[in-house]
């Protein structure tokens, strides 16, 4: 029974990992940008949520209504102010600049909040659980997070393939020059892509903060989980990130079930295994 439980919990955890991954996948799809500070933005969003819940006395889920637009705004300004200037043939400038941002965010958070682990409380929701047949107890909160993750990915999928913004994303991704000839301002489209990416990061950060304790140093680890989910699922495939997240979550939980020290290692090994047998991921869409 422990095993079934571990797998079910792993699937639900996969939803959170898919949220880490979706924003990363989105900006890579639109502008081939990899944001090394992605994980640190997740942690930033968690701290933002913490500040809002403690100062305004709101529940974390209500705080999302503030965190998400603030993160989106940060994303837009960051892209137009700094990151657009780094895009080009050379992959080094965006990599170095986001690496620098990662260091800045980590140490900025350290200055403000100290290194102490923090956690957000979602009240009674945290302890509520559903009893499933076969003696399985599943928390309401993990289920809620998983459902939200699926909804977010469905929403992103809709935006990407059914909205005019998504059309602009795909057009700019295909051919930046010709897209400009269609009246699309590349700088703005990229800004919107980053805004959307960090909006998802906002949700991911608040969920992370409710689920586990967090401190300023854990960002890079979240980046790696998100990255692994993207690669396992296949580049450019949003639903793939959900599959990737689930595979990662299940692997980690199975690893932990065997030996608590193997939790993270099992996830990484699952990633390396996929990389070895299917280098382009399970469901690739971009070369």
């Amino acid at each position: 029974m422990d095993w079934v439980n571990a797998i079910v919990q792993g699937i639900l955890l996969g939803g959170l990992y898919a949220l880490f991954a979706a924003g990363l996948s989105l900006i890579f799809g639109v502008m081939r940008l990899v944001n090394i500070a992605h994980g640190d933005f997740i942690v930033l969003a968690a701290f933002l949520g913490l500040t809002i819940t403690t100062t305004l006395g709101l529940s974390p889920l209500v705080a999302l209504a503030l965190v998400v637009p603030v993160m989106a705004a940060i994303g837009y300004v960051l892209q137009r102010g700094i990151l657009n200037r780094t895009l080009g043939e050379d992959i080094l400038p965006p990599l170095m600049v986001t690496f620098g941002l990662s260091v800045i965010i980590q140490n900025g958070l350290l200055e403000i909040y100290s290194a102490d682990p923090q956690k957000m409380s979602a009240g009674s929701l945290e302890t509520a659980s559903l009893s499933l047949p076969g003696d399985l107890n599943v928390g309401v909160l993990p289920i809620l997070m998983f459902v939200v993750a699926v909804a977010v990915i469905a929403g992103l999928q809709w935006i990407f393939y059914r909205s005019s913004l998504g059309r602009a994303f795909r057009a700019v991704s295909d051919n930046q020059d010709i897209a400009q000839l269609m009246g699309l301002n590349k700088a703005h489209v990229f800004g919107m892509a980053m805004a959307l990416s960090l909006a998802v990061v906002g949700i991911a950060g608040v969920f992370l903060g409710i689920r586990t304790s967090f401190d300023p140093s854990i960002g890079p680890g979240r980046l790696i989980f998100g990255f692994e989910a993207v690669i396992i699922g296949g580049l450019g495939n949003l639903w793939g990130t959900l599959v990737g997240g689930i595979i990662l979550g299940v692997s980690q939980n199975i690893g932990a079930q065997i030996n608590p020290g193997w939790q993270l290692l099992a996830g990484h090994l699952a990633f390396l295994f996929v990389l070895a047998v299917r280098p382009r991921g399970l469901f690739p869409r971009i070369d």
């Binding site: 005019s164 059309r167 602009a168 795909r170 295909d174 010709i178 269609m182």
Partner: peptide, 18 residues
């Protein structure tokens, strides 16, 4: 230089986006 990830109709619509 059509947009390869867009359908025929989407290519036309994006032309009218201005």
């Amino acid at each position: 230089q059509l947009f390869q990830s867009l359908s025929v109709e989407e290519n036309l619509i994006i032309g009218g986006q201005v």
